[in-house]
C-alpha cells in the first residue's frame, strides 16, 4: 500500500501511483480536514497531486525528498 489511511491521516510511502487517486479523493470527501504524512514518500503521481491541490491538506511530516518538498509547498500554498 502506497497510502495508508488512519482515521483522518493519510500516510504516503514510496512512489504513490495513479491508482491511489480515487481512494485519496474518497478519503478527503469523507475527511475534509484530513492531513497527510509524506515523510517517506518519494513521488506522487500527478493525479494525486491534483487531488491534494484542490484539498490543500495540512502536512504533518514533510517529505525527506527535498525536490518533492519544494513542489508540495508550491502546490499546496
Amino acid at each position: 500500500m502506497a497510502i495508508e489511511y488512519k482515521k483522518s491521516l493519510a500516510i504516503f510511502s514510496g512512489n504513490v501511483s495513479v491508482e491511489e487517486a480515487e481512494g485519496l479523493l474518497d478519503f478527503f470527501v469523507k475527511n475534509p480536514k484530513g492531513k497527510i504524512n509524506v515523510a517517506d514518500c518519494s513521488h506522487i503521481h500527478a493525479a494525486n497531486l491534483q487531488v491534494l491541490m484542490v484539498v490543500k491538506p495540512i502536512i504533518t511530516n514533510e517529505p525527506k525528498d527535498m525536490d518533492l518538498q519544494t513542489w508540495l509547498h508550491i502546490a499546496l500554498k
Binding site: A21, E22, L24, L25, F28, V29, P32, H43, I44, H45, A46, A47, L49, Q50, V51, M53, V54, V55, D67, L68, T70, W71, I74, A75
Partner: peptide, 28 residues
C-alpha cells in the same frame, strides 16, 4: 508531474489547477 520533476536547473516553478469544482464532483 514525474516528467516535470525531470527538468534540470530549475530556478522557479509553479503548478496550478483549473479544477474549481466541489471536491465531491471532482474527476480525479
Amino acid at each position: 508531474f514525474f516528467l516535470v520533476r525531470q527538468i534540470p536547473d530549475v530556478l522557479w516553478r509553479e503548478v496550478t489547477t483549473l479544477n474549481n469544482a466541489p471536491l465531491a464532483e471532482m474527476d480525479a
